[in-house]
Amino acid sequence: MSGFQRFLQNMGQGFLEKVAAFGRGSLFIWSILAAIPSALFRFDLLLKQIYVTGVLSLPIILMAGLFVGMVLSLQGYNILVEFNAEEAVGSMTALSLLRELGPVVGGLLFAGRAGSALTAEIGLMRSTEQISALEMMAVDPLKFIYAPRFLAVIIVLPLLVLIFNALGVFGGYLVSVSWLGVDSGAFWSQMSSQVDWQEDVLNGVIKSVAFGVLIAVIALFQGVNAIPSSEGVSNATTRTVVHASLGILGLDFILTSIMFN
């Protein structure tokens, strides 16, 4: 009987911990949201974070966008050429980039590049008691540390995804028109007749904003909740990447089923 009791106790404990973590997370999000207006007044802090998360992520996004577009059109060409429909490779590349691959791959790369850095930075700030020092000086870490980072991630990810998409389409153009000899007129005209500005381009942007919110919340929350030791910070960084990546993939399915159904 005691074994069963222990099982029940473990289960109850685990459940209560999850509920408590969920509550802490919600309170944390709420307090960040409340601090956003004052973050807008410290424009220099926001710019610094946009630089750190956005501009420094550009190389990886540029390379990835180009190569994803090139590979997509190469694979698409190999299949479409069997049906004599190789002109459709342009619209296929553009649609898959704009609807899915741009926001998702961009978000995954961004979570690995910038989300993990955010968690590590905030975790280390806490473990070296910089945040407590700020509080001692009556500087609100919510306004000074968290809100600018939160806002920067949400602003930066859609911009990065737009650049990723544009370069992906350009990569597809390079491979299919310059290399494989698809007619360039048919390539562009098929693309622009198939791709809808609102349905495809804007929905992709909305997706990337949602992923930005997800990454920002997870990265900041893991940083704040990290156990203040070197092991704790490293675990929190790992958790940020894993949770954000899985969250992006799951949320993508939900958003796709709402948007394209």
Binding site: L47, I50, Y51, G54, V55, L58, A94, L98, P158, L159, L160, L162, I163, N165, A166, L167, V169, W188, M191, S192, S193, V195, D196, W197, D200, V201
Partner: peptide, 23 residues
């Protein structure tokens, strides 16, 4: 750098709007 970044993404948006889609 941030200015260049924002300009670049706006250019990407214009490219997607006018060249790729039927805007």
């Amino acid at each position: 750098w941030v200015g260049a970044f924002v300009l670049m993404s706006l250019m990407a948006l214009a490219y997607l709007a006018f060249q790729v889609s039927n805007f």
